[in-house]
């Protein structure tokens, strides 16, 4: 299977995720779409690692997974804090940082 197929597939997934981040209003779904984009990056990293027969890209993908896990923890904590403070779970309503 050609490496180019994997790279093009990762481009598709990345753009689907970008469209979701730009169009959805629920912060939870925006986080999910961010996961899509990070996973597309992971797929591209792994396919390039395969293309060069080098394990460095796989280590990079693991680090990306760690960063994604941290982002999920902080993002979900913020969403739960928004819910507890009885704010609207809507990215369009939450346009200010001061609170």
């Amino acid at each position: 299977m050609g490496i180019a197929w994997f790279v093009v597939l990762s481009a598709f997934i990345f753009c689907i995720g970008a469209a979701g981040v730009l169009t959805r209003r629920n912060p939870l779904v925006i986080l999910l779409c961010l996961e899509l984009m990070l996973n597309a990056g992971n797929l591209a990293l792994l396919s390039f690692a395969r293309a060069y027969g080098n394990g460095d890209g796989q280590v990079f993908a693991l680090i990306v997974m760690v960063v994604a896990a941290c982002e999920v923890v902080i993002g979900l904590g913020l969403i739960v804090a928004m819910y507890r403070n009885k704010l609207a779970i809507d990215a369009d309503e939450m346009s200010g940082l001061r609170g």
């Binding site: 299977m1 050609g2 490496i3 180019a4 093009v8 395969r50 293309a51 060069y52 027969g53």
Partner: peptide, 16 residues
């Protein structure tokens, strides 16, 4: 991606 000159991308990768 399609216009890139990377020769490795259009192959199936080396034997590992």
């Amino acid at each position: 991606t399609i216009g890139s000159g990377l020769r490795a991308v259009s192959s199936t990768g080396p034997a590992v």
